[in-house]
């Protein structure tokens, strides 16, 4: 895998909240390289720092010290407007609670992104990729949790982002639905070539990844590569 170019690099990335004696250190000097096209799973208990890392890489949060690069540009040097533009161009997000806009139908939730992207798919294409071509005109309240999460994935991929960042995408779903969602993510990674980073509590999911990073106490505890990716259909929990 290492022949692929690096899409993310971090050097000594730290994040702390509060001041000296009572400061909480969410990240304690993280050095990580993610290559383009990889499917990477971040594992670790609550508070281990994985979400903080994802938020900084996604341009939602700022680091206290250290640096992070997206390709050749330093994310940690961008101001708020720069981060917005970065998110707008390059990043797709999938969250535990879907974060769909209740006032918009599935198709319109995807259009929310295709309206502002440079070279997007059509909303119909994106929804077909996650198997929701038949539910396009339903409002979120009319969809199941798994369907809502797949709309969120369609919304995230529709702009053809270079990176898809997923924070506990199956956290609110039962296993069967969760596997359907993971299948959608795997398809995007495989067919579109999008780099996918998934945060999870669920160690089983690590089997579908190229790279697995274990977090503990704000630092990387281990970084391993899977010789073979298991298709999500073979996962069970």
């Amino acid at each position: 895998m290492s022949e692929r170019p690096a899409i993310y690099r971090t050097a000594g990335l730290t994040k702390s909240y509060g001041t000296a004696p009572t400061a909480v250190h969410a990240l304690r000097g993280v050095d990580l390289t993610v290559h383009a096209g990889e499917l990477l799973v971040l594992l670790g208990p609550s508070g281990s720092g994985k979400s903080t890392l994802l938020n900084i890489l996604g341009g939602l949060d700022s680091a206290t010290s250290g640096q992070a690069w997206f390709e050749d540009s330093e994310i940690t040097a961008l101001d708020a407007d720069g981060l917005t533009e970065y998110r707008r161009r390059s990043i797709g997000f999938v969250f535990q609670f879907y974060n769909l806009i209740a006032a918009l139908t599935a198709r319109e939730n995807v259009q929310l992104i295709t309206d502002i992207a440079e070279d997007p798919m059509t909303p119909e294409e994106a929804l077909a990729l996650v198997g929701l071509e038949g539910r396009m005109d339903h409002f979120p309240a009319q969809l199941s949790g798994g369907e809502q999460q797949r709309v969120a994935i369609a919304r995230a991929i529709a702009k053809r982002p270079q990176v898809l960042l997923c924070d506990e995408p199956t956290g609110a779903l039962d296993s069967e639905t969760g596997i359907r969602v993971l299948t959608a993510l795997e398809t995007v990674n495989r067919e579109v070539g999008t780099t996918v980073m998934i945060i999870t509590h669920n160690a089983v999911i690590a089997d579908m990844a190229d790279e697995v990073v274990h977090f503990a106490d704000g630092a990387i505890a281990s970084h391993t590569s899977n010789p073979r990716r298991k298709p999500p259909g073979e996962l069970a929990w």
Binding site: G58, L60, D81, T84, E85, R87, R88, R89, I91, F93, N99, L100, I101, A102, A103, L112, I113, I116, R155, K159
Partner: peptide, 16 residues
């Protein structure tokens, strides 16, 4: 608030 935050995360600018 959540919708607006979601839009911001998705890359919508403050004004948008």
């Amino acid at each position: 608030a959540r919708d607006l935050a979601s839009m911001r995360v998705l890359g919508y600018r403050k004004g948008e």
